[in-house]
Design a protein around this nucleic acid. Structure first.
Length: 467
RNA sequence: GCCCCCAUCGUCUAGUGGCCUAGGACACACGGUUUUCAUCCGUGCAACAGGGAUUCGAAUUCCCUUGGGGGUACCA
């Protein structure tokens, strides 16, 4: 049985890239009836924090991404790593390196000066027993490094990229596997855990390509069977840079989308579709539907550029599938206005009239605000109102009539049409001034309907203001 | 600097030697419907980075160039 995992580190909010990696891993697991696990990579104690952990878990929950078994925390597995560190030292596959920061810096400086590639020069491999004794009596701190041995190519067949090869001389010298304080480092922890958790497939971002080479070296040293690797393309922004919170702000995090009223299904669908196309050209699909035909070889190799317009389209597609009641329920938490001042029928008609305009739920307020608040007409639109004064006057007369029925939207519309006929106006000349005077907007639902919702007081007041 | 990866419309992509005068979707433009928004429908715009090589034939294979990106920590 195959097993995949998502392994985020709680050093920031839940990132879109993490979600996408989780999605592909889950797709892979589901498509092959395997398992999908969750492991928290919190070995960096200074950067990890509990708030981020919570946020990440909640983000996944919101997206309906769940995992098999309990979440594994690397920080709670300290002793598991030690035995393997000891084993490597015992086998002479790892060694103590006493070089301190100054020495390392000096080494790099020299490399830069000579235009040589920077990296650890493996000096710790050939320490004499005297030197070691000296360092020990000096109580020098040390780290544990993996001995990469003689230069060789590390090769693997990447599911999305094909045959890969990285030479050990290009990965920056013997990698540290354990810090001076006994804390094990990322690449080592990942290998030990992926082995312990029996991962069969490791799919992650292509920014891990060199890490994979290091990790394979660790698999080999430990004599573990290595999993199948796949490296996913990254998400870029229009500036062709890796999407990141630091550079691009909150568009990189899941939180923004939840707050603004995107559907998790739409985000999931969009994220899958960024680098994957269904075999039959289907665009709208759920995770489970996609899993039915998922083929990791179809994952694209080139980076995907983040495109909010496409996300919006997906979201609109999902919104359009809701019944009125479902939509209402989703809209409620975002609504800043109290629609219950309208009758049930009016509410239904209103929502149905504007639902096609919504990219996301928080846009509901902007579509409904003018029924409650008096708003200013945009400078450049004022001339249309001025040109339409005759229309406004006529309409004001009609609406001011004693006993005029404001509840009958279609009747109001009739009256407007009559004015248009009397004055011999085209649609735009007729409707624009009225709409602008009444709603300060150039777009909106049927005018008869708008007036009936506005009611007598607001309608008359707003019309009078412009005649 | 060094290593690695990537390269089809503005964007996401289809395409694995002939079915490609390159298909779909988003976006955009225009038209129709609704005497006004949106919806819906139709039409249009628009790409194989460049150069070699292989081949009867190349978007598809190979090489070079160019461009872009990622990595290069006692971070993950």
């Amino acid at each position: 049985m195959i097993k995949t995992r998502i392994a985020p580190s709680p050093t920031g909010n839940l990132h879109l890239g993490t979600v996408r990696t989780a999605l592909y891993n889950q797709l892979l697991a589901k498509s092959l009836a395997g398992k999908f696990c969750f492991r928290l990579e919190d070995t960096d104690r200074t950067r990890s924090n509990e708030d981020f952990t919570k946020e990440i878990i909640e983000g996944f929950k919101w997206l309906n991404i769940d995992w098999d078994g309990d979440m594994v925390r690397q920080s709670e597995r300290g002793s598991h790593y030690q035995e393997y560190v000891d084993q490597l030292i015992a086998n002479s596959k790892a060694y103590k390196c006493y070089a301190n920061a100054e020495e390392l810096e000096e080494m790099r400086k020299a490399q830069r000066a000579k235009k040589l590639p920077e990296g650890y020069d493996n000096r710790g491999r050939k320490l004499s027993t005297e030197q070691i004794k000296q360092y020990e009596s000096d109580e020098r701190k040390f780290v544990i490094r993996l001995n990469l041995g003689i230069d060789r190519n590390i090769e693997w067949n990447d599911v999305v990229r094909g045959p890969m090869s990285i030479n050990t001389k290009d990965i920056g010298g013997d990698p540290i596997i354990q810090k001076f304080d006994g804390q094990v480092l990322y690449n080592f922890a990942v290998v030990v855990d992926d082995h312990a958790m029996e991962m069969t497939h490791v799919f992650r971002g292509e920014d891990h390509l060199t890490n994979t080479a290091k990790q394979i070296a660790i698999y080999q040293a430990l004599d573990f069977q290595q999993p199948i690797f796949g490296h996913l393309p990254l998400i870029f922004t229009k500036d062709k840079q890796k999407l990141s919170k630091r550079k691009h702000g909150d568009i990189a995090g899941v939180d923004k989308y939840r707050k603004e009223g995107y559907l998790p299904e739409a985000l999931v669908n969009y994220l899958i579709a960024t680098s994957y196309s269904a075999i039959d050209d289907t665009e709208i699909y759920s995770l489970d539907e996609s899993a039915k035909t998922f083929d990791p070889h179809r994952i694209s190799k080139s980076p995907a550029i983040y495109d909010i317009a496409k996300l919006n389209w997906f979201n609109r597609e999902y919104i359009s599938k809701f019944s009125h009641d479902e939509l209402m329920a989703h809209l409620k938490p975002y609504l800043k206005y109290d629609l219950s001042v309208f009758t049930e029928t009016q509410q239904t008609d209103l929502i149905d009239a504007i639902r096609g305009n919504l990219n996301k739920f928080d846009e509901i307020n902007n579509n409904v605000s003018y029924f409650f608040d008096d708003e200013e007409i945009e400078e450049k639109q004022i001339k249309f109102v001025d040109e339409g004064k005759p229309v406004l006057n006529k309409l004001l007369d009609v609406l001011s009539a004693d006993g005029f029925d404001f509840s009958n939207a279609s009747q109001i519309k009739e009256e407007i049409n009559k004015i248009g006929e009397e004055l011999g106006l085209k649609a735009k000349q007729l409707f624009w001034p009225i709409r602008l005077a009444l709603s300060s907007r150039s777009h909106g639902p049927d005018l008869g309907f708008v007036i009936s919702l506005l009611g007598k007081d607001k309608s008359l007041a707003r019309l009078s203001k412009h005649v």
